[in-house]
Amino acid sequence: MNRPNSYSSPSRPSRSSRPSRRRAAGHPPSATYLIAGGSMLAIVGLLVDLRTVFRPEPVADVCQTIVQRQSVLSRSELSRLLDIPERSSKATVQNVVSEPYCVLPSVEVRANVMAEREAYPLEFDPQTWFIILYENGEYAGYDFSFKR
């Protein structure tokens, strides 16, 4: 008795209709490599900012003369200093903050006036420096210099 074929395997494509390029098993096409490589470059480019590689040096590197290596500025000294109005005498400020860690080179920003600059690391954040500028024996202003 002839049993009808209830199942017939799907016909395989003939050899001639397969793609002609032969690949060793497991190798992805070259376009995938390019996409993968491009994506990696994109990720690196997004994550790395070259500008962070070349950064200004912290102010400790521009000290001209070290005055008092142990000198730091505490929170209480800082808050008392911030209460001192500009144009007070340098002596008034020094009474609060005492000797600086170092002195920066004098600069002449305004014609015929030499500005003196003194720097203190913050006791509570030694990476941050506090810089005071004096002119003609008067307190002119301050700024924080952050190590980037």
């Binding site: 376009a31 491009g38 994109a42 990720i43 480019g45 997004l46």
Partner: peptide
Amino acid sequence: RANLGWAIALLLTSMGC
């Protein structure tokens, strides 16, 4: 397909840069 791959790679690289 290779050209498309290059194009995508360049696009992604330039976006990243």
